[in-house]
Simulated scan of single mutants.
Amino acid sequence: MQTSDARVTARIVRTEDGENHTEYRVGGVSYPPAEVVEATLKAR
């Protein structure tokens, strides 16, 4: 039996030049855009 930790967390990050973006973490790996997170989850 195989189990996977598919926890997803998100946080807002402000860069030094004042821009905000959302960073997503899936299973301990960071991904910037939501589309990448969705593709990663579908591949599991």
Rank of each mutant, 00 (worst) to 15 (best):
M1H: 13
M1Q: 10
M1D: 09
M1R: 12
Q2K: 04
Q2C: 03
Q2Y: 04
T3F: 04
T3Y: 07
S4E: 15
S4H: 14
S4G: 13
S4L: 15
S4P: 02
S4V: 12
S4M: 14
D5H: 13
D5I: 05
D5Q: 13
A6L: 15
A6V: 10
A6T: 14
A6W: 10
R7H: 14
R7D: 12
V8P: 02
T9H: 07
T9I: 08
A10G: 09
A10C: 14
A10E: 10
A10K: 15
R11M: 07
R11Y: 05
I12D: 01
I12L: 09
I12P: 01
I12N: 02
V13W: 06
V13H: 10
V13G: 05
R14M: 07
R14Q: 07
T15F: 03
T15N: 12
E16T: 12
E16A: 14
D17I: 06
D17Y: 08
D17W: 08
G18I: 03
G18S: 06
E19K: 15
E19Q: 15
E19M: 14
E19W: 15
N20F: 13
N20S: 11
N20Q: 11
N20L: 12
N20R: 13
H21Y: 15
H21V: 10
T22V: 15
E23K: 07
Y24I: 03
Y24W: 09
Y24K: 05
R25M: 05
R25D: 04
R25G: 00
R25H: 01
R25S: 00
V26W: 02
V26D: 02
G27A: 04
G27L: 00
G27P: 01
G27Y: 00
G27E: 06
G27M: 02
G28F: 01
V29Y: 00
V29N: 04
V29G: 01
S30H: 10
S30K: 10
S30W: 05
S30E: 07
S30D: 09
Y31Q: 02
Y31P: 03
Y31R: 02
Y31I: 04
P32N: 09
P32H: 11
P32T: 07
P32Q: 13
P32G: 09
P32K: 10
P33E: 11
P33K: 13
A34G: 10
A34R: 15
E35M: 13
E35Q: 14
E35R: 14
V36Q: 06
V36W: 00
V36L: 08
V36F: 04
V36M: 01
V37I: 09
V37W: 01
V37P: 00
V37Y: 03
V37D: 02
V37H: 03
A39I: 06
A39Y: 06
A39S: 10
L41H: 06
L41G: 05
L41E: 06
K42M: 08
K42P: 00
K42Q: 11
K42I: 08
A43I: 03
A43V: 04
A43F: 00
A43N: 08
R44E: 04
R44K: 08
R44N: 01
